[in-house]
Amino acid sequence: MTAQTDYRLSQLDELEAESIHVFREVAAEFEKPVLMFSGGKDSICMMRLAEKAFYPAKIPFPVLQVDTGYDFAEVLETRDHWVDRLGVRLVVASVEKAIADGVVVDDGKTSRNRLQIGTLLNVLEQEGFTAAFGGGRRDEEKARAKERIYSHRDDFGQWDPKNQRPEVWSLYNGRIRQGEHMRVFPLSNWTELDIWHYIDREQIEIPSIYFAHRRRVFERDGMLLGESDNVTLKPGEAVTERTVRFRTVGDMTLTGCVESTASTTAEIIEEVAASRITERGATRGDDRFSEAAMEDRKREGYF
């Protein structure tokens, strides 16, 4: 940034300043914060903002990934690049291990996404994390539209949407009692398009699956899912190879892709700007089960 004579910030600069403020506030007031890193574009933007907030010092907290066992290889690769470059500690909580340890129960019907909740709450408690940064944005989903930047969780990791603390000005209340923790959403006021503009501006490295590539896919419930060892085809489902990209990154068995030829961030921005369907509606099986799917998971302690 150079000298600005009109003393105005662009919307990206203002959003960045707000997010950096949140990161520093948490680092100053919480004993043991952690950054929840999914490998998706939003959590990568969080990494970038955290890098800026503490530079030239290292990010003063570890990053946590809940490994569903169904994660895309490209995502894990990008995660490792980021962790290496920033020199931060990586904590991996494995859903597979949580199942083996009896922390969560795999009944064959519950999705890996849902099993992440128990796995996540368990690792937060075990490691004693008092604040966990999440990449959630308010434009994503209507339950999130009402969530605070500092979102209080009780002993059971539950969110009580009807009883949220008022959040006035930028005076964040970080008080928690023993056993409770805070979820913190520094990207609350960013939209999907803001994220893409920021990735473009900052030349941020994101997993290659966000860009158009050839992939063997099949159709299920109106979504395109990638062929993988973890998904069994149902009768009538046929695999074809198409040019696709992912708009969100999650559990491989539930995250759909869209047909697209966008192979650069600029092309993605064009595509997102013209899109008439939300990223979650288009590609997230986990949000489709009920009108309040996200709220229900969030109440239980989801990201």
Binding site: K142, A143, P161, E295
Partner: peptide
């Protein structure tokens, strides 16, 4: 569109501040 919480939809009232974005 803005009444995102289950209890809001059930009771037909808005409970909390909702943030919306457009450009």
């Amino acid at each position: 569109l803005t009444d995102g919480l289950r209890s809001e939809r059930e009771q037909g009232i808005t409970i909390d501040v909702a943030y919306r974005y457009f450009a």
